[in-house]
Design a protein around this nucleic acid. Structure first.
Lengths: 132, 132
DNA sequence: ATATTTACCTATTATGTCAATAGGTAAATA
DNA sequence: TATTTACCTATTGACATAATAGGTAAATAT
């Protein structure tokens, strides 16, 4: 299930896309518009900067802004950055995580098929599709 | 992400389907074939009985067996019983959980569309599709 | 220069879930 | 009556979630 990390990140991205004037938007403004604790958003937004989704600038006139055009962001990349791999099962989440049952597993095909479907769905959806 | 509860339940169901002679199969046998802790399986299997997936009989000659033909079980109902609602977000998991933002939420359509896709996928897959 | 604004950093906390383990009771059969 | 089996209650360690708290560094306006 998608947690607040992913959901709030999407809302921050939508907020930034709607106020995409080129200047930086203070987190204070985003937090008050979205009615989310600013302190908690700080943690989330920090990861979004580290992940290359947005850029931050300190000081007066500072804040956050998008790094690219809104249509160039997929929902999938935002969710995956915040939530980790969008995998249905642990053994498909990381290549290092090798299951001893993988050669005989009767469900692996199903999980793989499912994960591909999920991937296509979320990476096909763009940030602009949400704003409409 | 699907936990051991759902994954182990699927394996128990597949095991029962493959040894579906009409008689009861002791959990001891299932646990040793599947190489899963019998003690842990007890918890899982108890919920499967309570949920009407399988029936249990105590005493000698007892154990567990399917209530229906294998092709009459969908993967979705097994997973949903063990994992709870297969919802992507909390506000779609239970009808009692009403979000104050539901009338203005820009992502609700996406989550609904996604959940429908997931539902169709897992309820379309039958237990017999896994055994093949 | 200095005050102000803002991002950024580290730490802590309460609550809950996951994946088990442990030991016992009740039921059914040989 | 002994044995086998399901079924029941309780506990545990590890981890994740959703925050809160207080401080530091950077950039700008005056």
């Amino acid at each position: 299930m998608i947690s607040t990390r992913g959901r709030y990140a999407l809302r921050v991205m939508m907020d930034l896309a709607e106020h995409n004037s080129g200047s930086y938007i203070p987190l204070k403004d985003i937090a008050s518009r979205q009615e989310i604790s600013k302190k908690y958003l700080e943690i989330i937004v920090k990861d979004m900067v580290a992940g290359g989704l947005i850029s931050g600038l300190s000081g007066k006139g500072g804040g956050y802004k998008l790094c690219r055009n809104p249509e160039e962001y997929s929902v999938g990349e935002i969710l995956e950055l915040m939530e980790g791999p969008l995998s249905s099962v642990a053994c498909l989440a990381e290549s290092t995580n090798i299951c001893p049952r993988k050669d005989t597993c009767r469900t692996l095909t199903m999980w793989t098929e499912f994960d591909n479907m999920v991937h296509d769905f979320f990476f096909g959806k763009k940030l602009t599709d949400l704003i409409r």
